[in-house]
Design a protein around this nucleic acid. Structure first.
Lengths: 228, 228
DNA sequence: TCTATTTCTTATCCTACATCAATGTGAAAG
DNA sequence: CTTTCACATTGATGTAGGATAAGAAATAGA
């Protein structure tokens, strides 16, 4: 029970913990962990025992909308696994403008890999777009996992290569594609996010202003485009 | 001596192999391998024995200017280590326009990591900007290296993270920086390439037209900018 | 429910960069 | 020495998308 405190969102320490809120948070905690365990079994091909060993000390937290998980300039000590909700990472330029690097809906990971690996200050900020339940994986989790299972090492290597492929694709699109092409690519990458995320964030992800995105959408509508 | 044939550039099979050309190519071959061995010792912290074991079967080739090392659509089976010369990777868009993804001068690696790892057709084309001497590392090299040395695994992991960090930075610049800022970043990344590479290639790397780059340079000159 | 804030659209003008076309330059080839 | 070729520069003009402002619509808060 030692991690229960972590369940409550920072901004929302319930004044009175009634039995019902208590059990609600307990359920949330438990279900998030189970979800993460399932993920490890299916995607990383770990055994039940390995999963049990690895997940013994994990902390799960719920974070409120626009709560921060990582500030620019901090060293990133965690990988975040999103059980429910939606996180984002972004940079802030000299003019104070945000540029969204990644969205992380359910069952995605998000972190600043460079910062976590090289232990250097992060360029990225990570915060919650929706109230979210998040499993916190600190850097020792990775080491433990690596020592425990060769399967996990392979899984991790594959994840790194997937990430590289994705970044490559994004660079290529930014170099060669129009606003419209990039928007269509976004839709196929994150089909459900179109509805959940404010358009100005999508615009920011695409390197556009909200106004331009609005124009692109209008044009697509005129051409009778239907998203899947 | 069994790899000697690989030394000669495809486009240039010497009609007569005089003793002097023969010894020249032999020297090239030998010196490239020595350079690569030194690299492995210093950067990947391998022992002399491990290096000897790993490099026994390597092939070294010289490629002529604008010879291809990988065509778009092929599966990439190699990682290329540049001993001397300069390679590049690029994509080709629907309009036939090239977009340079990476330059690889001396002591850099170049490959299509996604294609090599996932064994899928490459988006990238790789060719030589200058006549180059290249060490070919096929996919079994990686496996052998991994089996042979824990140090190599760490080195490879670090290389992957460096690569990710670099891609991240590039995405961020493409999202947020002006042509001028991106050019300045290019100069600090590849200081010596400014002189070796035609400007239209630099423009392509930056996502600009040669004309725009020319104007950026003019503007920098007006502002009395001196590289480094 | 009604206000208030956030988000989305529309319209205008504007700017960074693209496109096109002409000219310049310097090194290699004849 | 001149011709050619491969790049680079320059200028004129076009355009995608940015900046700004203001109203409409959606959402949230009370």
């Amino acid at each position: 029970m030692k991690h229960t405190h972590a369940l409550f969102p920072h901004h929302l320490p319930p004044k009175k913990i009634t039995p019902s809120t208590f059990y609600f948070f307990l359920f949330t905690f438990h279900s998030a962990l189970e979800n993460f365990k399932t993920y490890l079994k299916e995607k990383a091909h770990l055994t039940v025992d390995e999963v049990a060993e690895l997940t013994r000390e994990l902390s799960v937290k719920t974070v409120g909308k626009s709560d921060f998980l990582l500030h620019e300039g901090e060293v990133c000590h965690y990988s975040f696994f999103v059980d429910k909700g939606l996180l984002r990472s972004y940079t802030i330029d000299e003019g104070g403008k945000e540029h969204i690097i990644q969205f992380a809906p359910e069952n995605w990971f998000i972190t600043d890999r460079s910062s976590a690996y090289f232990m250097e200050p992060s360029q990225l900020t990570i915060d919650a777009i929706e109230e979210s339940t998040v499993v916190f994986l600190d850097n020792t989790f990775m080491e433990k996992a690596r020592d425990l299972s060769k399967e996990f090492i392979r899984y991790n290597e594959k994840a790194l290569h997937n990430f590289i492929r994705h970044q490559q694709q994004r660079i290529n699109l930014l170099l060669s594609a129009t606003a419209e092409q990039r928007y269509l690519d976004f839709i196929s990458l994150y089909p459900d996010l179109m509805l959940r995320v404010p358009q100005w964030m999508i615009a920011s992800y695409l390197g556009l202003t909200p106004e331009s995105l609005s124009r692109v959408r209008k044009e697509l509508a005129r051409k009778n485009f239907k998203p899947q």
